[in-house]
Amino acid sequence: MSDLAFLSPSLASAVDGVSPRYRSPLEHALAGAGDALRDLSTLGKLEVRRELDAALEAGAPEVVRIAPNRTLVLCEAEAAPALAAQLGAVDVSAALAGLALSGERLMRRLTDLDLDGLPAMGAVAGIQCTVLRDEDEFRLFFAQEYGDHVAAVVLDAMAGLR
């Protein structure tokens, strides 16, 4: 079996002392956006497509159950490949962008999801997202190719509330 190493950005290695530069999909779009938004794209992210019953080491990774047979695991970037192997999960670190924002009002401008029923999957800024909530902070994980789009829509919605 191939270990699908080509899916894991954290397996990059230095050549002639130069390490490949890791570029978050939100890096360009959030430049100059201030600190109201946090880029979570560099986290390690795994997708488990079955009932995840294995007890994970306490404290380290965060487990988000999206559906009965679908779980998102968030971890340190470097830990992703090994954890993926351990759990039989797909390393989706490179596939997903992550964005943290705060304010329920802002979220209501972006999504029709029930904000009292999170975590859930649904459209935010018109894009399918996994949405987590912690008090007034919301974390979005979504296909990285929409990074510029989501950032632009969120920033525009923030401008509309000012």
């Binding site: 080509f6 490949p20 530069r21 570029r23 490179a94 596939a95």
Partner: peptide, 11 residues
């Protein structure tokens, strides 16, 4: 050449 998207600029 297919590579993890965050490393594409480097490649």
């Amino acid at each position: 050449i297919h590579c993890p998207s965050p490393l594409a600029e480097h490649l």
